[in-house]
Design a binder for these strands. Structure first.
Length: 788
DNA sequence: CAGTGAGCGAGCTTCCGCTTGACTT
């Protein structure tokens, strides 16, 4: 699709009556259709100005006056907008109706030098013809209170980020960062991890019985019921089963209760991210970029929103769709109210642009996400589901405990016909869903088997990207446009990693009463396996503890909520923004000073104990190159301590003395070969032998670094030499730094530790040194390690 | 590409929220 630049369009029509500026280009396109030919609609692409990038950007002495500059990637756009504005009679500032949007309009007015007399501010919450035309009929002046609330927000975030981060550089490690949002996100993950580490698992025996119920037609149906208590020990469970052997089981009551279930509201950014993660397995950023595609091609409404509101048009369209395809009784008009903290509601909920479009063309992922959005939106306008829940209580003649069976029958599916919301907690109790057999009170039941199974208490769950977003939103921390970036930021800073971790096997006991016999079995199950979960790193934990200790105010989960309240007061004109910042700054800055003066350099050191052989102290801490274990202490004139890096999977917080001692058994010196020492150690890619500054990996599942001997090591060294010799096509005496080698993808040149391609048509063995050099020159310099 | 574990200390790092595009093997 050909994109028409603003300047190109200008050549088509060179004087405009009206210039409308919105935030997003896709929105500009849609709106222009509604407004007709007297209006030219363009976009600012978000903010065009920000605090100075290089310096602090705030004149603290001078009442916190912000120093703004045009953002580097917006310079071209701003010159273009200036030109357009000069050639137009009326400028309509149509950025979003929230704090940031109002500020964008104000920055535009200031930067483009717009005359307030010919500048109009308009707002709308939905992109429908009616809403747009209505907005144009009702322009208003810029709301400077709202603008000031944004300036306060911006200035506060800069102060927090740019005053606290340097404290970390001095006291912990260079290049670290802290911020109102990211530091609290990390805190959530760190504290959850500590809950998991500190959790003690206990077990109890859960008892379930299967009864055999004869039906009218002579068939026998199984009824599963669970005991209303658990037993702490195997002995108690066994004693209970003994008493069941000759007991009579009689139904004491059958209770039927109607139940209703209502649909969830339509999607907002956070709920879309959660459902796409649970149902489709998308990462948060994946969801956003797919949604962006759908938005840009006009298939869904704006994807960064905190409002559950649907336009009247959408509600009507959904109604028609539901009545047409499912009938009147499935329809129910619903208006949802946004309940999340700090919502600003500048847009609609995320919904299909055209409700009658049930399927779209596009990539598979786009289709899936659209389908999810379509179903959720339709379901939100549908009738409740009606259920009947049945609870059957069964008395046991020999003991006071009772068995309970539950069943659920769908009387009317309602919205469930289209969409079922999923949840983070897996279904724990295996209660019988669906229809129960016909039962009545006083009925005597015959049992088949009774199981007493050992079940363990569950550790709190680690956060996924999506469940972290949910938590942040609940606390009012972050905005729809920042949820995805927050998650990448905390990972880029090295505070958090997203990983899979294997589980461990666990044994559990099961007692089965069958006939008159109780049998006991020990079974195994997998536990603790994690997939795509967020884990704090060692540095994440150290930084978090430092921040909590010295900056308790900004690390408080309620800090954002508290300042948001004050931003609201500024927006209402009840509070002067500079005053608010001043009263935050005075105590905050003294905390910064205090941390700079008082705090020791922090490395998260943890003393594990003493080495039984040497009697030296063993500790773990963050070193220059990451977490390490240290044997011995630095003393004047004394022996230097020994160091060893922690392996992947080992952490300062959890490593044991035994594991740390193991680390010092490597590297092992195996002896000499050809006059050079042979050592064995474990590196990032596993165990290796080192000889003559060469690294040779040990063979997996064959060699053990702790026991391998010199003869085997020599075997490995020779084996590697042979392999390298086979790989060598040609070497040059004149320049030993250059070689032609045979690799996995054919011949290539290696020169000064960089690899270069050889064109497929040339015979590698025939290349001269000069030929090689020209090939090297032709190829672009290899990229340096990517670091941002 | 796997080791290292402070030295003389230059000059640098950093925030949150609003948007879209682009260096490819």
């Amino acid at each position: 699709m050909h994109k028409i630049l603003n300047t190109e369009r200008k050549t088509i029509r060179y004087m405009y009556e009206n210039l409308v500026i919105v935030e997003s280009p896709a929105k500009a396109k849609t709106i222009e259709k509604f407004l007709g030919k007297d209006f030219f609609v363009t976009s600012s692409m978000g903010h065009i100005r920000d605090l100075e990038k290089k310096d602090f950007g705030i004149d603290i002495q001078n009442n916190f006056t912000p120093k703004y500059e045009i953002t580097s990637d917006k310079k071209k756009l701003v010159t273009e907008l200036k030109k357009l504005a000069k050639d137009s009679k009326v400028i309509w500032l149509a950025s979003d109706e929230d704090r940031e949007g109002e500020a964008i309009s104000w920055h535009l007015q200031e930067t483009l030098g717009l005359d307030p007399k010919t500048t109009k501010r308009i707002v709308f919450h939905e992109i429908t013809k009616e809403a747009i035309l209505n907005a144009v009929q009702n322009p208003r002046p810029l709301d400077l209170n709202l603008v000031n609330a944004q300036q306060a927000r911006r200035v506060l975030d800069r102060i927090v980020g740019f005053e606290v981060s340097p404290v970390l550089w001095k006291k912990v490690k260079p290049s670290l960062s802290a911020g109102r949002v990211q530091s609290v996100a990390v805190r959530l993950i760190v504290e959850r991890e500590r809950e998991i580490i500190g959790f003690t698992t206990t077990s109890a025996f859960r008892v379930s019985a299967s009864f055999l119920v004869p039906e009218k037609d002579g068939k026998i149906t199984e009824l599963k019921a669970e005991l209303n208590r658990r037993f702490d020990t195997k002995e108690e469970a066994n004693a209970f089963l003994e008493k069941c052997k000759n007991a009579e089981f009689q139904i004491s009551e059958v209770v039927k209760k109607p139940a209703r279930r209502s649909p969830a509201p339509p999607f907002i950014t956070s709920t879309l991210q959660q459902e796409a993660s649970r149902k489709l397995g998308f990462s948060v950023s994946q969801t956003m970029s797919i949604a962006q595609k759908l938005y840009e091609s006009g298939k869904v409404t704006y994807m960064r929103t905190d409002s559950v509101n649907l336009s009247g048009l959408a509600i009507d369209a959904a109604k028609q769709m539901i009545i047409k395809t499912m009938g009147e009784k499935y329809h129910q008009v619903r208006q949802f109210k946004t309940k999340s903290k700090g919502a600003q509601e500048a847009h609609e909920a995320i919904r299909p642009a055209y409700m009658d479009q049930e399927e779209i063309s596009g990539t598979n992922q786009e289709k899936k996400l659209y389908d999810l959005i379509w179903k959720r939106t339709i379901a939100s306008q549908m009738a409740e589901a009606e259920l009947e829940k049945t609870t059957v209580t069964i008395d046991i003649s020999t003991v006071p405990e009772k068995f309970v069976a539950t069943g659920e029958v769908l009387i009317f599916d309602g919205f469930l016909r289209v969409y079922i919301e999923s949840s983070d907690d897996e279904d724990q109790n295996g209660g019988q869903k669906g229809l129960l057999p016909a039962l009545s009170a006083k009925q005597i039941l015959r049992w088949d088997k009774i199981h007493a199974t050992e079940r363990f208490t569950q550790k709190p769950p680690r956060y996924t990207e999506a469940s972290l977003v949910k938590k942040l939103e609940e606390q009012g921390i972050g905005r729809p446009s920042t949820y995805a970036p927050i998650i990448t930021t905390v990972q880029n800073r090295g505070y958090v990693v997203k990983e899979d971790r294997p589980g461990t096997e666990r044994e559990f006991t099961e007692l089965i009463l069958s006939g008159q016999k109780i049998s006991s079995k020990v079974k195994t199950e997998q536990t603790g396996a994690e997939k795509s979960k967020l884990f704090p790193t060692d540095i994440g934990m150290v930084v978090n503890d430092f921040l909590v200790k010295y900056f308790d105010l900004i690390m408080d989960y309620n800090f954002t909520a508290k300042v948001e309240k004050e931003f609201d007061e500024i927006a209402e004109g009840e509070l002067v923004w500079n005053d608010m910042i001043q009263s935050f700054y005075t105590p905050f800055h003294s905390k910064v000073e205090n941390a700079l003066n008082e705090a020791e350099r922090t490395n998260g050191v943890r003393v594990l104990g003493t080495d039984p052989t040497s009697g030296l102290e063993i500790s773990v801490k963050i070193g220059r190159f990451g977490p390490l274990a240290q044997l011995g202490e630095v003393t004047e004139g004394g022996e230097k301590p020994q160091f060893a890096s922690l392996r992947s999977g080992q952490h300062i917080e959890t490593i044991t003395l035994e594991d740390a001692l193991e680390l010092f058994k490597l590297p092992r010196n195996l002896g000499e070969y050809e006059g050079k020492t042979v050592t064995v150690a474990i590196g990032r890619f596993g165990p290796y032998v080192r000889h003559d500054s060469k690294f040779i990996s040990l063979e997996k599942n064959v060699d053990d670094p702790y026991s391998i001997e010199l003869t085997r090591a020599i075997e490995l060294i020779e084996g590697k030499r042979e392999k390298d010799a086979n790989a060598l096509i040609k070497a040059f005496e004149e320049n030993p730094e250059l070689k032609i080698l045979n690799g996995r993808w054919g011949p290539y040149i290696v020169y000064k530790k960089n690899n270069y391609k050889i064109p497929k048509t040339t015979d590698a063995a025939q290349l001269s040194l000069d030929d090689c050099m020209t090939l090297i020159d032709k190829q672009p310099a290899p990229k340096k390690s990517r670091k941002k």
